[in-house]
């Protein structure tokens, strides 16, 4: 009765009300930024006095924005590749290995998710300053890889646990070498896990702000760092248009993942 809408009585209207308000609350900033980015008011008047695309043009006419987008793409892509390269073998060891301290190792691999990112950030900040690596591509990749790796390990471990190892052994019995069996049987079977690992690693790097703030130099900034430094100065509408592009990207990724999930669910 409390878990059945039709038999719940008038109480359900309270739930409906809270539900609708929460949905509006969750949508409010997202929809608002999108509307604002097309508004012509420099002072963020709402509703805007007119409509324009000039804030989008401003992004692409400013080499600093374009450069930061490009830096973000390069860093995130490198992080994604390295995260799979390190995470995939690690996941194999975690799932199939029978060595002492396996649970501990698993906990260690996901520990970057638990340590507050500000602590990682200042620890790395002091560390890279010592080696003169601040503001370098390597520093960004290393920092972002720390927070991306747990996603990669978790995704691949999950899908590998769902894969029956005897299928791989069957391939070996049929004459495949160990490597052939892994590359032609096991990896294709867990490809959805690897794909999610790559996606989450890319996004973890792409959205990372705090580590970026501490790794950046005036000459090398990722997109979130550029947004952060701009936001600290003023609330220019250019941020709204950058944000809207990011929201559009989020929606595209959501549609792709929903589509893939549906395809693989069959």
């Amino acid at each position: 009765m409390l878990l059945n809408l039709n038999r719940m009585g008038p109480g359900r209207y309270v739930l409906y009300g809270i539900g609708v308000l929460t949905a509006l609350f969750l949508l409010l900033p997202v929809a608002f930024i999108a509307a604002l980015s097309f508004g012509s008011s420099q002072w963020l008047q709402f509703p805007p006095p007119g409509w324009t695309l000039k804030w989008y043009a401003a992004i692409f006419n400013d080499p600093r924005w374009v450069e930061s987008i490009w830096t973000s793409v390069k860093v995130a892509f490198t992080v994604m590749v390295l995260s799979i390269a390190l995470g995939l073998p690690a996941a194999f060891a975690l799932v199939r290995g029978k060595f002492p301290g396996r649970t501990l190792l698993h906990a260690f691999f996901i520990s970057p998710m638990i340590v507050p990112v500000i602590i990682l950030a200042i620890a790395l900040y002091v560390f890279v300053l010592k080696f003169g690596l601040n503001g370098t591509f390597i520093a960004f990749v290393a920092a972002h890889l720390i927070v991306a790796l747990p996603f990669s390990v978790i995704c691949i471990v999950n899908s590998l646990e769902g894969f029956d190892e005897s299928t791989e052994k069957a391939a070996i019995v049929c004459g495949a070498t160990k490597a052939e069996a892994i590359f032609r049987v096991t990896l294709p079977a867990i490809r959805l896990g690897i794909f999610s690992a790559a996606l989450f690693s890319f996004l973890a790097s792409w959205d990372e702000v705090v580590l970026g703030i501490f790794m950046a130099s005036p000459t090398l900034q990722t997109l979130p760092v550029r947004m952060w430094t701009t936001l600290r100065q003023d609330l220019t509408p250019v941020i709204a248009s950058v944000s809207t592009l990011l929201i559009a990207l989020t929606i595209v990724i959501m549609i792709i993942t929903a589509f893939l999930r549906r395809r693989y669910a069959r």
Binding site: L27, P29, V30, I33, P224, M227, W228, L231, I247
Partner: peptide
């Protein structure tokens, strides 16, 4: 999911303006 996956700075900017 949309609100969760939207860039943190974008969401925070939205609230700053609102």
């Amino acid at each position: 999911l949309l609100s969760m996956w939207t860039n943190l700075l974008a969401r925070t900017y939205g609230w700053m303006v609102l």
